[in-house]
Computed example of a mutant assay.
Amino acid sequence: MNGLRVASLLAATMTTGLVAGVYGTYANAVMPGLAKTDDKTFVGAFQALDRAIVNPLFLGLGFVGALLFTALAGLLSLKEKALPWIAIAFVLYLITMILTIAVNVPLNDALKAAGDPNTIDVAAARAAFNESKWVAFNTARTILAVISFGFLGWALYLTGKSAAQP
Rank of each mutant, 00 (worst) to 15 (best):
A89W: 06
A114K: 11
A124M: 09
G65H: 11
L72N: 00
Y157S: 03
R51V: 10
I53V: 09
W85C: 02
K81P: 15
E80L: 02
A71M: 06
Q47L: 10
Q47P: 12
R51I: 11
R126V: 13
K112E: 13
A87I: 06
L72E: 03
K79P: 00
L92C: 04
V103P: 03
L67G: 04
L75A: 11
A52E: 14
E80A: 07
I147P: 09
L75P: 03
D116N: 14
V91N: 03
T142Y: 02
F58K: 09
R126H: 14
N108S: 13
R51W: 09
A52P: 10
N108M: 10
T70K: 04
A48D: 07
A102G: 02
D121R: 13
K79C: 05
I143N: 05
L107K: 12
D116Y: 09
D116V: 13
L111Q: 14
A73F: 09
V105H: 11
L83Q: 00
L49H: 12
R126N: 15
F151P: 08
A102L: 01
I147Q: 11
L67D: 00
A87T: 04
A155K: 10
F137S: 07
P106I: 00
Q47S: 08
R126F: 12
L49N: 12
A71T: 02
N108F: 13
L144Y: 11
A125Y: 12
A114M: 14
T96D: 06
L152E: 02
F69T: 03
I95S: 04
L83N: 06
W154L: 05
L68Y: 05
G65M: 11
K112C: 08
A114N: 10
D116M: 10
L83Y: 00
K133G: 00
L158I: 10
L94H: 03
I95E: 01
V103M: 06
F149Q: 01
N118E: 12
N55E: 15
F63Y: 14
G150S: 12
G150F: 05
P106D: 01
A82E: 09
A124F: 07
F69M: 00
M97C: 06
L61H: 09
N138P: 05
G115S: 13
V146W: 01
A87L: 13
V91Q: 04
R51P: 03
V64A: 11
N108W: 14
L144R: 07
N104A: 07
F58S: 02
S77A: 15
L99H: 04
L61G: 14
K112Q: 11
V105M: 07
K79E: 04
A123I: 10
A102P: 00
K133C: 07
I86T: 09
V146M: 08
A89M: 04
A140C: 13
D109P: 08
I101G: 01
I86A: 09
A82V: 07
S77P: 02
V64L: 15
A145F: 02
W134C: 10
F58R: 10
V103N: 03
P84L: 05
M97Q: 05
A89K: 01
A127C: 01
V105W: 07
A140N: 08
A114P: 13
P117F: 05
D121I: 12
L57F: 15
D109I: 08
W154P: 00
T100E: 12
P84A: 00
L83W: 00
A140L: 15
P84H: 04
L78C: 05
S132K: 14
P84V: 03
F129P: 15
G74M: 06
A123Y: 03
K81G: 15
Y157I: 02
